[in-house]
Each structure stands twice: as C-alpha cells, then as structure tokens.
Design a protein around this nucleic acid. Structure first.
Lengths: 92, 92
DNA sequence: GCAATAACTTACCAAAAAGTAGCATAGTTA
DNA sequence: TAACTATGCTACTTTTTGGTAAGTTATTGC
C-alpha cells in the first residue's frame, strides 16, 4: 500500500484532517487535480482503509469523505510533511 | 521539489540516516530498484540539496553518498514513515 | 419537457516513468 | 594482454500514469 510514491494521496488526506468534506469541496481544495485522478485517488484511499465514503441518496448526489482511525494515525506524518514543505519553499 | 510523489527518494534517504554509504552498498539495500533509477534518484536528491556525492578518483570507481544538513532535517519524517509502514503491514 | 445539478465512469489518447541491455572507464591482477 | 572491477550513461522499449471529453443519473425549477 503505497502512500508514498503517489502525488495526490497525501494531499487528499491532509485536507481531511480537519473533518469530513463533501466530494466537490475536497476536490476544489486540491488545485490541479483532474476529476478522474480525484475519483481514482479517493477510491484507492477507501480501499486502503484510510478514508470512508458516505453516500447520501439524494439528487443531485451528495458524497462525504472522512478519515478512518487508521487514516488519522497519519496525522503527524502529514503535518510534518506540510511543515517541511513550507520551510523548504523559503529556502529556494 | 517533490519528495512525495516519488517511489525511491524516501527509501534512499532512509538508508543514509545511519551515515554515508558507497554507491553499490546503498543500491543493494533497495531491492527492486534498477541501476538506472538508482542513478537518477541520487542525482535528483543531490540537485535537491538533500545528499552529497563524493567521488574518489580510483579505479574501479568509488562513490559515497551522505545526507546534507537539509537531508538530515527529514529524519523524523522518514522514521515516522518507516514506523507507520511497519505497523501497517501487520494490519493486513 | 428541458436544462441544471453533483458525482461519478468510461473510452480514447498523450505523456511520463521505468525496465533492459549494451557501452565506457583504467588500473589491477592473473 | 585479457579479464575484472564499480559506477554510471545511453538508446530503445514497455508500462504506468494522467488528461480530455462525453455519457449517466433522478430530481428540481423554469
């Protein structure tokens, strides 16, 4: 199960740290991701057991994503990566 | 500078946490990496300023890689990733 | 009855990543 | 003199990844 080696998974997880999000909102928080990659990524994360996908049977559709306990166990790593990235940007 | 989104960089860095290593040794610590990817990865890491490459002018060649200060600043993240990976393996 | 909506899925194609295999180096050793 | 050594480059091919655009759904609102 590669978290590392993928471009989008860490980003998706990071944005879910604060709580669950609707599909469309989550996607908008990740500039540059295509619809296809977004769907594919959340599907993978669901299969990995890191997030849950909750579908509300309404029209138009409503779908929410939320971290599982296992997903939350990545919090430290995700925040560290974020911090390191910020520091790093300043350096160059 | 994407550390994340690459398969090999974190692995290479991780094995250098304990100190410098000769090229061949380092490569053997990473099963499955091809010679081409190994060279490419260390070149990238050098360009990123995370490792240094020291060439000894002998025959046959001797090359050593070592983390820079900046590379060492990733230690916590790398060890966290490693730990998380281990825990994770037990779960499935 | 037709468009708009949110969240996909699929098919098709282009681009990027990675594997394979061969070549080069130049001293040391057989 | 020929093979061996450790490292890495290059050309070529395969595999993987990703983008675009179109289609689907069922209800609401015009």
């Amino acid at each position: 199960m590669n978290l590392i080696g993928t471009k989008w998974k860490p980003l998706v997880l990071f944005h879910l740290l604060e709580g669950s999000l609707r599909s469309g909102i989550l996607q908008k928080k990740i500039p540059g991701i295509s619809n296809k990659m977004f769907t594919q990524t959340v599907r993978d994360l669901e299969k990995d057991g890191l997030i849950t996908r909750k579908v509300f049977p309404v029209v138009p559709p409503k779908v929410e994503y939320r971290l599982t306990t296992r997903g939350k166990s990545l919090e430290n790593i995700l925040r560290s990566l974020d911090n390191w990235g910020l520091k790093d940007d300043q350096n160059e």
